[in-house]
């Protein structure tokens, strides 16, 4: 089958691949480029485990065709820590016991990051709404909601 070239920025570095037309971004990231931080939980847009950030927007990479991402700026959880220092969201997820099996965690962190980028001081309802597309089968959500609120507080203290 004919291959299509695709080129985008992933966590700040340039990536270029030839892919089969119709390849999802999830597949391209995981199996071609080797960033396995987005997870495939359903491949049908219902679990949120594959969430990534494309040009600042939260996207399900299992429902995004890789060929539509040329020129895009893509961020995943694998690129969040800077110089080995955890992002406040990562720190808060650790401290709040917001991970159990961890399979939903990279997607949750992506959803939370988009929220905090836009709404630095979210209400509890804002957090619940922002995470509503992400399924966690282990934690019961409460520690995750608390982690996001804690990270928001840490951010605003740093900013102050």
């Amino acid at each position: 089958m004919a291959k299509v070239p695709v080129q985008f920025t992933l966590n700040g570095s340039e990536k270029a691949e030839f892919i089969e037309s119709g390849t999802t971004l999830l597949h391209a990231l995981r199996d071609k480029i080797g960033d396995t931080s987005p997870k495939g939980g359903c491949h049908q847009g219902t679990c949120g485990a594959c969430s990534v950030i494309i040009d600042g927007e939260l996207r399900l990479s299992c429902l995004t065709l890789a060929e539509t991402c040329s020129g895009a700026d893509i961020k995943t959880t694998a690129g969040l820590a800077e110089g080995g220092v955890l992002h406040p969201l990562q720190r808060a997820f650790l401290d709040a016991f917001a991970t159990q099996c961890g399979f939903c965690t990279p997607g949750m962190i992506m959803a939370a990051k988009v929220l905090l980028d836009r709404t630095p001081n979210p209400s509890r309802e804002d957090v619940v709404e922002a995470l509503s597309g992400n399924i966690c089968r282990c934690t019961g959500y409460e520690p995750i909601v608390q982690a996001v609120l804690t990270a928001a507080r840490a951010n605003s203290q740093n900013a102050a």
Partner: peptide, 23 residues
């Protein structure tokens, strides 16, 4: 006493290797 889980750092950084991460 609260104690950090040993596997959490891998989870929050996306580094934990699940079986399907092997290619």
């Amino acid at each position: 006493q609260p104690r950090p889980r040993l596997d959490s750092p891998g989870h929050v950084t996306g580094k934990t290797a699940y079986f399907a991460d092997r290619n």
